[in-house]
Design a protein around this nucleic acid. Structure first.
Length: 1093
RNA sequence: CUUGGUGUAGCUCAAUUGGUUAGAGCACUGACCUGAUACGUCAGGGGCUGGAAGUUCAAGUCUUUCCAUCAAGACCA
């Protein structure tokens, strides 16, 4: 027996099927049954179990699951090793938060050892929840043998990769200017800087400082700064090459000294008021108003001032190389300031870059270890060499002081005739999100991967990758590669993969270790040379690894560089490290690299997608993945970002529990293209449930109901196609067309289109046309070939659909498949996921048949629409429909579906009205596609001519199959192809059009038709009475109907028909019946008594 | 600020790649409980395709520009 169900309960189906999968090991079987040689390689991007899974994870995982399942069903072996991303700042921060400590406490109030232990525990905090949602959403991934980035084997593979880079000269140490929080004692990522609220409006003392030009009496560059504390570190000024500058003679407003200052012409009016050749120093007052000037001495381009030398502004520290020159930088603008930018290479990233280009050195002092350091220490205080301000904090770090140090610097400049003007300036400035104190741009030592050296190759190989959508690959990712910067690998944290590089004190000798074995060898060497007793630690993390001292060839001790590596390197290394390559699994690796397919959110473009690609290109000169789907963001239904704070986040657990995984998955895939942002609305899931799963469920229920009655077990030989009725051949043709399309879509990673086509098939063709028209075949008559054909056909539709939809809706599909296949044993598979999606049978596809059925549907719809307009309901039979036909082929097509249309719209006959009748009014239109190219500019005139052709002209064209068009003095020889001719109207009839289709309806009601209509109304009413009284479908009845003129004729002519339909043994017309009231059309009410016979 | 995406009916999305009435579903209005489905069926109303300009015989589709929105990145001297 086929199982019958009262109602569709998707969550219940989930539970049942999930239990089945687990009990029977279906996932494992789906892999084990396929050969490694025929692998479809998938890489799982490791999530961090440090946070709860969100609905967007369900989205990404659905996409991954779809294509893995699809390729499994195409016969490929699809291993899916799970993985966990376990390192990184978010984990450290959550541990710090939990313990109530800051980074400074690590190594003091808590040992690094304990701290890392805590990280290791915390990182898997939500693993159970993740595993739970993974199972509940039906995402098939190997949860039992995941790769875990903190494991030694994983770290060893990463070390190996780093050593490959090192050996290729792609790993180097340098310093860069990075956002740094002195209060927190840590560098900040750009991500942290972009956190909401990081930028705050603050008021700073800005200054325009005067840099005296060497060799001049009193000429100065004017440079504006909002950070006067960087002035002692100044080593250059930058000008714009094409910016025009002025030399202006005036007096210093504070000291009265005569000066000539240089600034951009565009900025002149911001600093100077009127010209006054007789200006005297006394005329000027301190303050920041524009001042008068004596004269403009010269006007010149920035380029002419390049390399002009000037005197050091605040000579606390002498430079260790060339400095104090004018440079040209393309970042200089004249939007504010003076058009001249003060350059302090130690405190600005542009500054650093431009200075480096010109060979200008930064100002540095030596710290107690003899290393270079800038004039501000890591706490944000001036070093002792800056005597006047030694120990002062450069920004507000909570210190108590009379004035900010910026103000004191300005006062000093003022006194020394080095200040042009100063004012308060309000601007937004980044703050550390943890301490709320200002961030400094600060030079930090870092290890870099020289990604820029390989950017052309990365760009090249990227073009071989199939991106979905393409724009992400070409645009977002491609542009990113074009402007690629070196990859800053260093992180000065504790919980992560340690950089495997050891150096001597001076940094002149270094060793990069690529394996545990190599480390062991080096440790042995060091032990021998240094008389130590070290061992390779069991855990490769800090702090153990830090304690290892190696030895150089010359006997010098080497110490580990304390940095950790960027966690993104961890995940980018997963293709190799998940297999502990090259230390293990070397042999099967070729079948598992590169990936055929990966998928993640667009936010991973510069994240995982990049790190995978970068490592693959730099180490293996290969791509890491061939196809990538990057899905859009999941927003709330109003298009807002989901966040816990706003309370608009959708809980995936609740959603899946309530609606089931399949409806959730189907909705997410079908609603919008997966790479577009999704406005997630629960109402959409409900709709999907109702319109798609509901219909399919009903279709199955219908099948089960009658197949059980008829004991259909699919035991009979298949009825040959030629013996099956037209409608069966039609639905099978449509089904096989669907197979072709869905198969092609899924092969091209177009899951949205695939899902939509299946929905359309179920709704428009299977449920609302095939079943509707075939109902009677299932419940009437004996178990004949026709009936068997109907069952076989519907059965094939359902099982095929189950297979096609299985990748997207794995639970429901398996449920459907098993409900059918377990009864029939028609196929040997215990689960749909072990079955194969077979190619469509091309001999099953008959496009002509599909076309004529489409005509039938559209003609029916037109007729119904006409009935509607004239308020004639479908129960009222009409005499005929007239269809204009312009060619033979069309007539043939229609003949085949004539009967369907007649019964569907309840008309007696269909008449073809050919041209010969002379009754047709035709419409002619040019075929733009063929004519446009030929006629070009004449098209408009031609259109005019063609539209105005008379009926006679049209007939002539059809007869001669050609037409000479004279337009613009040229004549064109047109044939039938160049026109679209359609019947438009039949004068005197009710017509409706749909594109080329036209129908006319005869709405004349003869007494016979009225009587038949009434008969049908009576049948309908009596059937209702039967239903209301809960009669059995087989019960016989007897009827007494009130004698009434409205029904007399109907009973007289169609009494037998009525009796047959309602199973009446007797139908009598009698006067004065006591019984139920029947409301009939035309406000007729008659009484009837119905009783069991 | 730069780059990229998006903008079509009240809402969510289509539109065969430049070809002539711009289509569905939901919502809305109306009709119908027709022998699987009222969680259903049928019909109907609803559009200056974000604005402007351009290319073209022809633009929702291509170009430019502006506007809105989202994302990524840069910078804030």
């Amino acid at each position: 027996m086929y199982k019958e169900f009262k109602q569709l309960n998707l969550p219940e189906i989930d539970r049942e099927i999930r239990a089945f999968w687990e009990k029977e090991g279906i996932f494992e079987k789906s892999i084990a049954q396929r050969a490694v040689e025929n692998s479809y390689v998938f890489y799982e991007g490791p999530p961090s179990a440090n946070g709860m899974p969100g609905i967007h994870h369900v989205m990404a995982r659905t996409i991954k699951d779809i294509f893995c399942r699809y390729h499994t069903m195409k016969g490929q072996r699809v291993e899916r090793k799970g993985g966990w991303d376990t390192h990184g700042l978010p984990i450290e921060l959550s541990v710090e938060k939990a313990l109530g400590i800051t980074k400074d406490d690590i190594g003091k109030s808590i040992s690094v050892d304990e701290y890392n232990q805590k990280c290791r525990e915390t990182v898997m905090m939500y693993k159970d929840r993740w595993d739970d949602i993974t199972r509940k959403t039906g995402y098939w991934v190997d949860l039992d043998n995941p790769y875990i980035t903190y494991e030694n084997d994983y770290i060893e593979s990463v070390w190996w990769l780093l050593q490959q880079l090192y050996n290729k000269g792609l790993l180097y140490k340098g310093f860069t200017i990075q956002p740094y929080s002195p209060a927190a004692g840590t560098g900040l990522s750009s991500h942290e800087l972009n956190m909401p609220g990081a930028y705050k409006e603050i008021s700073d003392t800005s200054a325009v400082a005067m840099f005296k030009i060497v060799g001049s009496d009193n000429e100065y560059f004017l440079a504006w700064t909002t950070t006067p504390w960087t002035l002692p570190s100044n080593t250059a000024v930058a000008l714009g090459r094409n910016i025009t500058y002025l030399k202006v003679r005036t007096y210093n407003r504070y000291t009265g000294a005569p000066i000539v200052v240089i600034l951009a012409k565009d900025r002149f009016s911001s600093y100077f008021s009127e010209q006054n050749p007789d200006l005297k120093p006394e005329d000027l007052k301190p303050g920041n108003k524009p001042i008068p000037y004596i004269e403009i001495v010269a006007e010149l381009k920035g380029a002419e001032l390049e390399n002009t030398e000037y005197e050091q502004l605040l000579p606390y520290v002498k430079p260790d190389g060339p400095a104090f020159r004018a440079l040209l930088g393309d970042f200089v603008s004249t939007e504010d300031g003076t058009g001249i930018v003060h350059i302090a290479p130690t405190f600005g990233s542009d500054d650093f870059k431009v200075a480096k280009q010109y060979g200008i050195v930064p100002l540095m002092v030596k710290d107690e270890l003899g290393n270079d350091m800038p004039l501000v220490d890591r706490h944000g205080q001036f070093v002792k060499e800056v005597t006047d301000f030694a120990g002062r904090f450069v920004k507000d770090y909570g210190q108590v002081e009379e004035r900010p140090v910026d103000v004191d610097i300005v006062i000093k400049l003022k006194e020394e005739n080095k200040l042009f003007v100063s004012e308060k300036y309000v601007h937004s400035y980044p703050h550390c999100w943890r301490t709320d104190r200002p961030v400094l741009y600060y030079p930090l030592d870092s290890w870099f991967i020289k990604a820029s050296a390989k950017k052309e190759r990365m760009f090249e190989l990227n073009q071989t990758i199939n991106w979905k959508p393409a724009s992400t690959g070409e645009g977002r990712f491609g542009k990113w590669l074009e402007n690629l910067q070196d990859w800053n690998l260093s992180r000065s944290r504790y919980w992560g993969i340690p950089l495997p590089i050891w150096r001597n004190k001076e940094g002149t000798i270094e060793k990069c270790i690529g394996s545990v074995a190599e480390l062991q060898t080096e440790v042995n060497k060091a032990n021998a040379a240094l008389g130590k007793n070290q061992a390779v630690p069991k855990d490769l993390h800090r702090p153990y690894i830090d304690e290892i001292v190696l030895v150089a060839d010359n006997g010098e001790p080497l110490y580990r560089e304390l940095d950790l590596i960027d966690v993104w390197f961890d995940s980018g290394a997963m293709p190799y490290a998940q297999w502990h390559y090259p230390f293990e699994n070397k042999e099967g690796f070729e079948f598992r690299y590169p990936a055929d397919f990966i998928a993640e959110g667009v936010d991973q473009t510069r994240g995982w997608f990049y790190t995978l690609h970068a490592i693959a290109v730099m180490v293996f000169d290969s791509v890491a993945f061939k196809n990538v789907v990057s899905n859009g963001l999941v927003l709330d239904k109003n298009g807002q970002k989901m966040s816990k704070r706003l309370g608009n986040a959708v809980d995936p657990f609740e959603t899946v529990d309530k609606y089931g995984a399949d409806a959730t998955r189907w909705y997410m895939i079908s609603n919008a293209q997966v790479w577009d942002n999704l406005r997630f609305d629960l109402a959409g899931i409900e709709e999907t449930t109702r319109l798609f799963f509901g219909k399919l469920f009903n279709t199955y229920s219908f099948f089960a109901l009658y197949a059980n009655i008829d004991k259909f077990r699919h035991m009979e030989a298949d009825i040959p196609m030629w013996q099956r009725p037209e409608i069966d051949r039609w639905i099978l043709s449509a089904l096989h067309s669907l197979i072709n399309e869905v198969d092609a879509d899924l092969a091209q990673y177009e899951s949205t289109n695939a899902a939509r086509k299946m929905m359309q098939f179920v709704d428009e063709q299977l449920s609302n046309w095939y079943i509707r028209l075939c109902r009677r075949r299932f419940w009437k008559g004996d178990y004949t070939d026709d009936k068997i054909s109907a069952y076989q056909t519907l059965y094939e539709c359902l099982t095929t659909l189950a297979k096609l939809m299985a990748p997207i809706a794995p639970f429901f599909a398996d449920w459907l498949y098993q409900n059918l296949n377990k009864v029939t044993r028609h196929e040997p598979f215990e689960s749909v996921h072990l079955a194969l999606i077979e190619p469509a049978g091309d001999d099953m596809i008959d496009k002509g048949l599909e076309e004529r059925m489409d005509y039938a549907q559209r003609i029916s719809s037109l007729v119904l629409s006409l009935r509607k307009k004239h308020k004639i309901n479908v129960r009222q039979p009409l005499q005929k429909v007239i269809l204009p036909v312009l060619d033979e082929a069309f007539t043939e097509q229609l003949d085949a579906v004539k009967d369907l249309i007649k019964s569907e719209v309840n008309v007696k006959e269909i008449e073809y009205l050919t041209d010969a009748s002379g009754l047709l009014k035709k419409r002619i239109k040019p075929n733009f596609k063929t004519l446009g190219k030929r006629l070009g500019p004449h098209m408009k005139a031609a259109q005019e001519i063609i539209n105005n052709l008379s009926q006679a002209d049209i007939n002539a064209i059809e007869k001669n199959k050609e037409y000479i068009l004279e337009v613009g003095g040229t004549s064109f020889d047109l044939n039938l192809e160049d026109f679209e001719i359609a019947a438009e109207d039949i004068p005197g009839w009710l017509v409706a059009n749909d594109g080329p289709l036209t129908v006319a309806l005869d709405i004349t009601l003869t007494p016979a038709l009225v009587a038949e209509g009434m008969a049908r109304e009576l049948v309908n009413r009596i059937q209702n009475i039967r239903k209301n009284r809960d009669f059995n479908v087989t019960d016989r009845i007897q009827i007494d109907l009130e004698k009434h003129p409205a029904v007399e004729e109907a009973v007289a002519q169609f009494g037998q028909y009525i009796s047959d339909e309602v199973l009446a043994v007797r139908l009598d017309l009698v006067a004065g019946v006591e019984g139920e009231l029947l409301d009939l059309p035309e406000e007729v009410v008659v009484k009837v008594r119905v009783e069991l016979a």
